[in-house]
C-alpha cells in the first residue's frame, strides 16, 4: 500500500474519531464511529490482515453500531442541550491527552525496531510453504497449496492457529458470549423477579 492511501485512511479514521467526540448528537457520533471503523478496517487490510479487517466491519460497523443506534433510538436521545462547560475537567482532560500524545511521540522516537518499513518485512510465501510440516499420505495441505500459488490463505492460517494452539481460549470466549447473552436478557427484563 502506498503511503498516500495510508495517509488518506489514517486521516479519515482520526478525523471521524474526533467527530465522535465532538458531535453533540449521539446519532451523528455513532455514524462517525462507523466511518472511523471503516478507515481502521482499511488499515487492517493494508497490513495483510484481511480477516481481521472484514471482522472489524462485520462486527463493529455492522452489529455493534446497529446495537448502539438501536439503543440511542430506544432511549430517544436528542442532541444534548448546552450545559455549562466545566472548565477544570475540560482543561484536565485535554492536558492529560496531550501528555499522553507527547509520551507516545517521545517513545516512538527512540523505538528503533519501529523504524523498519513494510518492505523490510516482506512476506515470503515460498519460505512459508517450505516450513510447513509434512502431512500424512492421502491428505492435502491446502494452506501449502495456496502458499505455493503465491496467495495468502489468511483465514486458513488464523483458523489453524485458533483451533490448534488456542482451542481452550476459544471455548472460554464462547462461554463468555453465552453468559453475556443471558446477562443481557436478564438485565433487559422489565422487572427482576
Amino acid at each position: 500500500m502506498p503511503p498516500v492511501a495510508f495517509i488518506i485512511f489514517s486521516v479519515i479514521m482520526l478525523v471521524f474519531g474526533v467527530l465522535v467526540v465532538v458531535n453533540r448528537n449521539p446519532v451523528a457520533s455513532a455514524l462517525s464511529l462507523v466511518v472511523s471503523f471503516l478507515g481502521l478496517a482499511a488499515l487492517f487490510v493494508s497490513l495483510d490482515a484481511y480477516f481481521v479487517g472484514v471482522v472489524q466491519i462485520l462486527v463493529y460497523a455492522g452489529a455493534v453500531m446497529v446495537l448502539f443506534l438501536f439503543i440511542i433510538m430506544l432511549l430517544d436521545l436528542k442532541a444534548e442541550a448546552r450545559r455549562k462547560i466545566n472548565v477544570v475537567p475540560m482543561i484536565g482532560g485535554c492536558v492529560l491527552t496531550a501528555v499522553l500524545v507527547l509520551q507516545l511521540v517521545s517513545v516512538l522516537n527512540t523505538f528503533e525496531p519501529g523504524k523498519k518499513s513494510l518492505v523490510e518485512a516482506p512476506l515470503d510465501y515460498a519460505a512459508a510453504a517450505a516450513a510447513r510440516p509434512a502431512v500424512p499420505e492421502g491428505k492435502s495441505d491446502t494452506i501449502k497449496r495456496d502458499l505455493r500459488e503465491n496467495k495468502l490463505p489468511d483465514v486458513r492460517l488464523l483458523g489453524e492457529q485458533l483451533f490448534t494452539k488456542f482451542p481452550f481460549h476459544l471455548q472460554i470466549a464462547g462461554v463468555l458470549l453465552l453468559v453475556s447473552t443471558v446477562g443481557v436478557v436478564i438485565l433487559s427484563k422489565r422487572e427482576l423477579k
Binding site: F6, S46, L104, F111, G114, K115, K116, S117, L118
Partner: peptide, 8 residues
C-alpha cells in the same frame, strides 16, 4: 514506505 512507527 510506511513504517511500523507510523502505524503505532
Amino acid at each position: 514506505m510506511v513504517t511500523l512507527n507510523a502505524y503505532l
